[in-house]
């Protein structure tokens, strides 16, 4: 086997993981570089989808059908277990995303911004002013 065919085999054997890695890194990039909280949630959602695809692609068996029993004879089925895990994970992920977005709405109410660094600056300022005013109160 020469080098080229080996490389091609590796590519077609592993390209599902590479797609997952690419998506995952897109998500991570948004989460760590963007200061806007909503964009962070979007990044997390993309990250989550990459994990879904990782699980589902691992369950796939080439030439198999969906894991629903056919009437007669035997067939090769894909692995049902990851499907179950991801099925529930999708619904859970939308619920947790809803909680995150609700938190963001509350942050917007309290700080009038959804930018992470602005919020931190606010907090620091507030803490300083509290420190300064403490002896006065006592």
């Amino acid at each position: 086997m020469n080098f080229e065919t080996q490389w091609l085999q590796t590519f077609f054997g592993l390209y599902n993981y590479w797609i997952v890695v690419a998506l995952m890194m897109c998500g991570l990039f948004i989460v760590i570089t963007d200061g806007n909280l909503i964009k962070k949630v979007v990044g997390l959602t993309i990250f989550q989808t990459s994990v879904f695809i990782l699980y589902i692609s691992m369950a796939k068996v080439t030439g198999a059908t969906a894991p629903i029993q056919i009437e007669q004879g035997t067939a090769v089925y894909s692995n049902p277990l990851p499907h179950v895990l991801i099925l529930t994970a999708i619904v859970v992920s939308i619920s947790t995303t809803a909680v995150a977005l609700a938190l963001i709405v509350r942050i917007k109410r309290a700080y009038h911004t959804v930018e992470e660094d602005v919020i931190q600056r606010w907090d620091v300022k507030k803490r300083r002013s509290e420190k300064r005013s403490k002896p006065f109160h006592e």
Partner: peptide, 9 residues
């Protein structure tokens, strides 16, 4: 990828 239930959701 044969995951019809997941696709629905």
């Amino acid at each position: 990828l044969d995951a019809v239930d997941v696709a629905f959701t």
